[in-house]
């Protein structure tokens, strides 16, 4: 145990933690997205899915797990970033990047934006603080009317717009994050480089489109309160 703590306190160990937690969050994002897609099947489907989740015996386990993974991802990144800043106390007066990608360069920034969006997102749809008026609705089966909440919420152009923007930034975060996941876990071989790169693009594009489709279709009126 002490050995594990020692090894996971090194820079490579930290990176592994960030990668593994990032990977777990990625899996969550996929699951969350697929669940959210039930919105397109109408109020019954989404509300049923939400009720099933709420009633699941392991829900709190997953919630705490998710929070722990998220906190670890952020805290270890903070520790790494601090160490990395310390490693270059004097900056160059002129420095031209040769290969560094836009996504890798703004990883911390995109992460911070995603984090503040997440806070907003939770306050909005999980705790009902932002628009309390849509949070209290119930559907015909006395279930929490998540469908109505989502559809009404995304009718607001500011909310829909910021949601789409944040998802795009999340996408940037994921492009570098998902590719790094492979590198950090040691999966990098010239035969598969192309496969990994395009696989990541495909995955991230899927996630971004999946998430964005909800506010966009709602805002455009394709998905309405009446369902369908």
């Amino acid at each position: 145990m002490i050995r594990l703590v020692r090894l996971f306190s090194t820079s490579v160990g930290d990176k592994l933690i960030v990668a593994l937690t990032g990977g777990a969050l990625l899996v969550f994002l996929l699951g969350h997205m697929l669940g959210n897609m039930t919105v397109f099947q109408g109020p019954d489907s989404l509300n049923g899915y939400a009720a099933w989740l709420q009633g699941h015996p392991l829900v709190w386990f997953f919630r705490f797990g998710l929070v722990a993974v998220f906190v670890a991802h952020v805290l270890v990144t903070v520790r790494l970033t601090k160490a990395n800043r310390r490693a270059r106390p004097v900056r160059y007066s002129r420095r031209v990047a040769r290969q560094m990608s836009f996504t890798s360069r703004y990883m911390v920034l995109s992460g911070l934006v995603v984090m503040s969006f997440l806070a907003f997102h939770l306050l909005h749809l999980t705790f009902g603080v932002i628009q309390p008026e849509i949070y209290q609705l119930e559907d015909s089966q006395q279930r929490h009317d998540v469908y109505a909440m989502v559809v009404s919420g995304f009718r607001n152009p500011w909310i829909a717009g910021s949601y789409v923007l944040s998802i795009l930034l999340l996408g940037l975060h994921l492009i570098h994050g998902a590719a790094s996941l492979f590198q950090t876990l040691g999966i990098n071989h010239e035969s598969y480089t192309v496969l990994i790169r395009y696989g990541v693009y495909l995955l991230v594009t899927g996630i971004v489109l999946g998430y964005c489709s909800i506010p966009l279709l709602i805002f455009s009126g394709t998905v309405s309160l009446e369902g369908g």
């Binding site: 090194t10 820079s11 490579v12 990176k15 790494l80 990395n84 990047a97 040769r98 560094m100 890798s104």
Partner: peptide
Amino acid sequence: VEAMDREGFGGCTNHYE
């Protein structure tokens, strides 16, 4: 890796510079 950290080098964040 431990020596690298001890010497005050940063960690890799896959910029590939």
